[in-house]
């Protein structure tokens, strides 16, 4: 009966893992990273509605922008598209790569506003 503590330990670990996964599925929202074939980091944590409420963002175009010939079109937005429709993985033609676009969109704004996460692990939570 020396195995009892060991079995108990496995149960305990199992329970913790289950609860963790459950919570994550229920509450967490992340940026879709399915276009990255070989992604190195966890998808960025992002609670869409909560974020916009906290940040006081009303217009979709604030983030879902459209550029034409290097100019941002003020009254048009792109929430009906995927980011990767415009930003490919490599970038080019003056278009930032997808990674750079994400980082610029989120971190860039956070730096400007001096608010919100700016360190790698603050969004790509392990």
């Amino acid at each position: 009966m020396r195995n009892i503590p060991l079995i108990a330990l496995f149960f305990l670990i199992g329970i913790i893992v289950t609860i963790n996964v459950g919570w994550a599925q229920e509450d967490m929202e992340v940026v879709d990273n399915s276009v990255f074939e070989n992604h190195q980091r966890t998808p960025s944590v992002f609670f869409h509605d909560e974020h916009n409420e906290n940040a006081g963002i009303d217009g979709c175009a604030e983030c879902h922008h459209i550029y034409e010939k290097g100019e941002r079109l003020e009254d048009e937005s792109s929430e009906d598209q995927s980011c990767s429709d415009c930003h490919n993985l490599e970038g080019g033609d003056g278009q930032p790569s997808l990674i750079k676009a994400f980082h610029g969109n989120c971190k860039g704004c956070h730096l400007d506003e001096k608010k919100g996460p700016i360190l790698c692990g603050e969004c790509h939570v392990k």
Binding site: L119, C120, G121, E122, V125, K126
Partner: peptide, 13 residues
């Protein structure tokens, strides 16, 4: 430590 986000991540960073 920062990569694994152990301890106080922002401080470690």
């Amino acid at each position: 430590l920062a990569y694994h986000q152990w301890f106080a991540y922002p401080l470690i960073m």
